[in-house]
Design a protein around this nucleic acid. Structure first.
Lengths: 241, 241
DNA sequence: CTGCGACCGATGATATACGATTTCGGATAC
DNA sequence: GTATCCGAAATCGTATATCATCGGTCGCAG
């Protein structure tokens, strides 16, 4: 007995045919979105059956989705108990930012020599856009542009592995917090200036060491600003070098 | 012949009771070991049903194991097609080494100020051991000691996220190749000298920038040696900075 | 002889089924 | 009144079943 199951009708067990991606992927994005939206706050218990019910699928794809999220560190998983949304304290955010400063600095240096004049132009255009938005400041939009700007600089990195690592770290930060600039709006102005500076270094074929240093500093300065703003009493011990 | 299998009968679906860990974990380790042992060579097709049969379990845990391996980059997965062991060309190895040089250099610098005299002593002891083994050179053992040495230096890093990244990258390299030193035995001597150099920098509280540079160079020198040995015609474009 | 399309086998994706494990509340003993 | 134990409910882990999709083969037409 085939248990008539879902309304989708008899032929639609597989997702791909109708919509284009697997159920597990759908579940994955669904959950991820909830986490990003804070609907599932840290500590929230992710129950397979419940989610499966809401998404109108069996628990199997949901389970897989959760394991994927676990691999990304978004949720913690305990055997025979289940998954819950990871706790993300400030500390982790800061560590991730620092790691990103290192990765991004290196990736940018590794890409510098491969950027064409056109690439630079494109990056500069993005930065101009950022400057324009400074008036009616929208932290979320600014952060998006910021990401675009840097992506433009290192996407051509000579080392795809570094690109992976950077993107991964960026995604991680995205989970931890929507936008840093929401916390320290004043940082935005400096930021765009530093962007221009980095561009000039690249254009003038400055030593790669200089470029790396500038790119790293640029990001760790954001972190510093955040620290001073939010935790004036602590320090990370990051060498500025 | 066991095939009537689960003598356990229809009940006992759960593994934990008898052995202690889940079937999916068992499958995970089983597959991983095969890959490490080169029994499953790159490109090898991982068929759920077959593996499930060999491990005497259903396909569900196997599937999960494979997804885990996918997340680690050990296997490639294609929807509705299946998984195969990732291709690992030299290129990836080199990129990973370069990434590691960057990560490890930074992690070492971030740990430098937190190392006690005792930590240094321990690291030096490991290096002495490495020197001793130079006579009857065993690449595998040397690599293991090398890992221990560096781990001793950065395990106290101020940034746990960096530690994660470094360890992850190291694991990745482990999959890609057993030991670099098997390819370029001559590098071993230089290597231990550089180790001592790094130790002295840390002891003398050299600027963190110096320490990072030394640690990074140390590893990228290994990479360079490998390149010269194996691919004298190519270049990576890594800035020595 | 060659190219294209329909069929078929292999395998992946998902649904359902059910025992196992954990958790939590209530009853009981001290 | 508090601690402990027992049992039920919730939920997980895995087996089995079914359907979808992919890849290849075979046959037919040009």
């Amino acid at each position: 007995m085939t248990t008539l199951r879902q309304a989708q009708g008899p032929g639609a067990a597989q997702a791909s045919g109708s919509n284009g991606q697997s159920k597990s992927q759908r579940a994955y994005h669904w959950i991820k979105e909830r986490i990003a939206n804070q609907e599932f706050t840290p500590g929230y218990r992710l129950v397979l059956g419940t989610i499966a019910g809401e998404l109108d699928m069996s628990v199997v794809p949901v389970r897989e989705a959760i394991r994927q999220l676990e691999a990304e560190g978004l949720v913690m998983f305990e055997r025979n108990v289940g998954a819950r949304v990871s706790m993300v304290d400030d500390t982790q955010y800061r560590f991730s930012m620092q790691a990103l400063s290192i990765l991004e600095g290196a990736a940018t240096a590794l890409a510098a020599r491969r950027l064409t004049a056109d690439d630079i132009r494109r990056a500069r255009a993005i930065n101009e856009l950022m400057i324009e938005t400074l008036d009616h400041f929208d932290p979320r939009a600014f952060t998006r542009l910021n990401q675009e700007f840097h992506a433009a600089l290192f996407e051509k990195t000579a080392n795809p592995r570094m690109l992976d690592l950077v993107e991964n770290e960026w995604a991680r930060l995205g989970h931890l917090r929507d936008s840093t600039f929401a916390f320290i709006p004043g940082r935005a102005q400096e930021s765009v200036r530093e962007h221009e500076n980095i561009l000039q270094l690249i254009e003038s074929s400055a030593p790669l060491g200089e470029i790396e240093k500038a790119a790293r500093r640029h990001r760790s300065a954001t972190l510093d600003a955040y620290m001073i703003h939010e935790h004036p009493d602590e320090a990370l011990g990051l060498p500025a070098f």
